[in-house]
Nucleic acid binder design. Structure first.
Lengths: 214, 214, 214, 214
DNA sequence: GATGAATGAGCCTTCATTCAT
DNA sequence: TATGAATGAAGGCTCATTCAT
């Protein structure tokens, strides 16, 4: 965690520092990321970085936390999931939409987090990432159990396999959206999501057919 | 590509060099990988590495190619697929089995390639990886089209979505096997695959239900 | 010399600052001594240190002066010598006793000053130390001349050599006491001096024999 | 100890490196000593220093050893003492002469070693120095015991006190010679020792009187 | 061609000092 | 005057690459 001094900064400055860091880590990876450049891009003295963070590693780790928290807060992910999704298929649909939105507005952060999850910084994040993945997974498993209870989901296949099935498809559909968004570059607009809507629904249809109760 | 001098080495030496490199890159990532250590572990002079490769990057890139080629050749992947697999589901089954086998015998290489594909070395491999993914994908698409023609696969969803659906599930099931194999460590034995056989079949069942023609 | 601001502080605060400084210099040497830590241990802001002292060097130099003055005042060294010691041998005896006492009560300061004199901070203190040594030496020379006049000390050897002879033995006997005291740690008690009393007297006997008039 | 690579260098280069290091440590102390400057003055790349030594500390520690060994070898100290000195007073005389000679020809090294022994680098050398001092002291004690046995030295004072007495005087007379030599600067000549010869003899006379048997 | 010592650019980190509050 | 955050120079160390043998 950053030192007290970091939190004394006004929010704008904090954000500037974090975005400079994330930007640099994304561009050059952890080892090659240059603290001097981060400082310069945040319009802060190099030494100041060390008043905020113990060292490069702490800065990196907090970059991960900050991005996640930032997106969480911005898209109010917790509440939206907690309230809106009643079954796995809804979840898949709305989280796809979220991914799209985030990608549109916070490409930098989203790509950074994606990279973290995909293992680009493996040696640094192994533990914390696996913790987060576990949480995400448990959420899905919960939805699946609920679905089985309610009779929407077939009983003959065990939860673990079903969750792999869902997350596999889910990952892919998000990847697909991400790629589309990356390709579109800065020109993505709100409406673009509609274009892919039928694709997402097709994927969900496949899942429903695959795992739905007859 | 390596310089002429590398190919003059006898095969055993070549392999020793490549395995030392892969080992080091796997352990410490590209930036922190130490050419001196690679040389030492390959029982070769540090300078010799530069007689074989232009620089560290070339050594890395060739490590990727070498591992892929090595596994391809060892497991005769092309031919086995070309001949044996007649539909997507067979493909999924046999490639899962392959993955398992490779993991058992060549853990080091497999993990390295996995990491490459999962983006650990993103900045370096982006292009070459996307090329390889494209090939793999085209192969799947081919199988899907074939399945549609033969009437095994539903016609109402487009090829791209179907391929995402298959590769999503496929990726997950392989991940699942990999994790099991990593956990088992050096103690994996041939028979262990049987334990997971029904899981794989369950996953394929899900896929079939999802995308199979009614 | 410190700035005016330092002397405005109440004595207790002044002492706290100086002891913190001495403590830090003793522990880490001049270069590695950390102004931030000194401030923290003195319960004063880092910036305040710079309100009291021009820079680190001045703080150090004043630490030397302060310790010396402090011990001088506390043990009233000047007057006690001026009054009580009538010859070199008395001086040696009483200054040994002083050294012992000081070591018992102000280990920290005494060790610091010792280190200064022994050259640990040579580059910084060369001049001031040599000034102090010169004073001490002149005092001894005075005693020697007095002794010669009164007929206690042999005439055939020049003052300079005699003073080297005395201070050599004196230094050693004090070193000896210091080491004993350091070894005893916090447990030195008043009485302990008696244990070494006969050693000191033996040393003085040697000196007397060596330089005493026949 | 240095790495193998250091000993591969020809003797001239080794000496150049060591003298550059000693020079720098003497001038600026351990912390402020600048590896870059040492390298430059030794006409060697900065990185090369790290091929020879693990780090700055090892370089320093070897500087101490190297200087000591160098002087030992050059002045054949071991054998000259072992053979020539038959009693403490001879020892004192010849070691004074040695000190003078060394000071004349190797001012730099001698001052460096002096500083080491006097505690300028206390934190670094404490242990190794105390070992060396112990050896030196045991040698003196041996001479004293021998003198007592042969009847040259009084029996009524214990060995430890006598050794303090001798080393005190010895230290001072050497200091005296050193100071003279430092003052004379580069202009010391062989003959200069004669000037101080009678001083040394006076000091020895004092010692003899002090501790000699009646 | 093989070797491994030499090279020096590059970067994280420390911390004395300054400065705005 | 007190504070403590901001600053940036400085330096130890690493290591990819070069080069002399």
């Amino acid at each position: 965690m950053p030192k007290e001094t970091f939190f004394i900064l006004d929010d704008e400055k904090q954000e500037k520092v974090m975005r400079a860091a994330i930007n640099e880590f994304s561009a050059h990876g952890f080892e090659k990321a240059n603290i001097g450049l981060i400082a310069k891009n945040a319009a802060v003295a190099k030494g100041s970085i060390y008043q905020y963070f113990e060292n490069k590693k702490e800065l990196f780790l907090f970059s991960v936390k900050w991005s996640t928290d930032y997106l969480m807060k911005k898209y109010d992910i917790y509440s939206s999931y907690k309230n809106a999704t009643t079954d796995v298929f809804d979840y898949l649909y709305s989280s796809s939409k979220d991914a799209w939105l985030q990608m549109r507005e916070e490409r930098e952060l989203v790509i950074f987090i994606q990279d973290v999850f995909l293992g680009k910084y493996k040696n640094l994040t192994d533990e914390s990432v696996s913790v987060m993945l576990k949480y995400a997974n448990e959420y899905i498993i919960g939805l699946i159990r609920d679905g089985k209870k309610k009779g929407h989901i077939r009983q003959d296949i065990d939860d673990r396999m079903l969750s792999l099935f869902v997350t596999g498809a889910s990952t892919k559909i998000k990847e697909y959206l991400m790629i589309k968004a990356r390709e579109a570059g800065d020109d993505i607009v709100d409406g673009d999501f509609e274009v892919y809507d039928k694709d997402i629904k097709a994927m969900i249809e496949l899942l429903k057919n695959g795992m739905g109760a007859k």
